[in-house]
Simulated scan of single mutants.
Amino acid sequence: MTQPTRRKRDRAATRAALLAAARARFTLVGYDATSVRDIARDAGVDATLIFRYFGSKERLFEEVARAAEEEAAVDAEGSAADLPTRLLHAAMKQDSPGSASGPLTALLLSSGRPECREQLNSQLHETYVRNLEKLVDLPDRELRAELLTAWLLGINVARAIAHTPALSDACVDDITPYFEQVAAILLGTPGSESTDER
């Protein structure tokens, strides 16, 4: 009688392990350079289970990207006052020390694929730009929100793709004070030294 429960638990654990391994791989090298064998080996299971649970590598990638998007959306919820800092923390989330693997990284590394580019564009606009725009009470709010989003994206690129030494070694707490100063200026929030009243 306990056997079905154990199988169900094993299935859920295996599926979770495949998702975690896929996210790590896609984040490390992108979609095209990742094979189902790599993912299965990292998860410690047979590669056929990827097709059983997800149907294809493409569907597995879609699920990883969707989970990352939902995660970023949750990170964007809360008070407006610390939204830029929460978005920075979301963009720099790490699965393991010394490896940048935030929710945008897998999409960035796979942006040669049209569907990944489209998903990246959607996530940047819906999660980052639209939420940051709400903090700006100036005529050029969209430009300011996009500039700050571009900096978030640049931080991910520098850490995960270009591997620039100082940014790659920095933790989110090292970067936060600088990011908050620039965010205050761009968004025209109290405490910024911007005198631009356009």
Rank of each mutant, 00 (worst) to 15 (best):
A91R: 05
A160G: 11
V182G: 04
I39A: 07
L147A: 14
K8D: 12
H89V: 15
G154T: 06
P177M: 05
L104V: 02
P177V: 08
R130V: 10
R198A: 10
T105L: 12
R117S: 11
R9L: 13
Q119G: 10
D137F: 13
D196K: 09
I155A: 14
D82Q: 05
E63L: 12
A40Y: 02
W151Y: 10
A166G: 15
A40N: 04
A160Q: 08
Y31M: 00
E77S: 12
E133C: 14
I155G: 05
D75Y: 10
Q181V: 13
A183W: 02
D10E: 15
R41P: 02
A150K: 01
S56W: 02
H125C: 04
S96Y: 00
D10H: 10
K93F: 06
D32R: 13
F179Q: 01
L18D: 04
P139M: 03
S110F: 09
F179C: 06
K134Y: 02
E77I: 01
Y53G: 01
D38V: 07
S35R: 08
I185F: 14
L107G: 05
S96G: 05
H89P: 08
S110P: 03
E142G: 03
L124D: 00
A24N: 04
A73P: 00
F26H: 07
A20C: 03
A68W: 02
E146I: 07
Q181R: 15
L107M: 11
Q181A: 14
S79R: 10
V157W: 09
L187P: 01
L153C: 11
E71S: 13
L147P: 01
L120M: 09
A170S: 15
A43C: 02
D75F: 10
S168R: 15
L138D: 13
R52K: 11
A67Y: 03
T48Q: 08
E62D: 15
A166Q: 15
H125E: 13
N156M: 15
L138T: 08
H125L: 07
S96H: 05
E126W: 07
E115D: 10
A43P: 01
A24M: 02
E197Y: 07
L143I: 11
F61H: 08
D169F: 12
G78C: 02
P139C: 00
D174P: 07
E180P: 00
I175Y: 04
Q94T: 08
S110G: 01
E77A: 14
V29T: 13
A65E: 14
L83M: 00
I155Q: 11
D42N: 09
T105W: 05
D137V: 12
F26Q: 06
R15D: 04
T195P: 00
V74Y: 08
A150I: 06
A73Q: 12
L138S: 13
P4L: 12
L104S: 03
V64R: 00
N121L: 04
S194T: 14
S99Q: 07
D82W: 02
E197C: 12
A68F: 00
E58P: 00
D32I: 06
P139Q: 05
A170C: 09
A183S: 14
R198Y: 09
D10P: 01
E69P: 01
S110D: 04
R52F: 05
T149S: 11
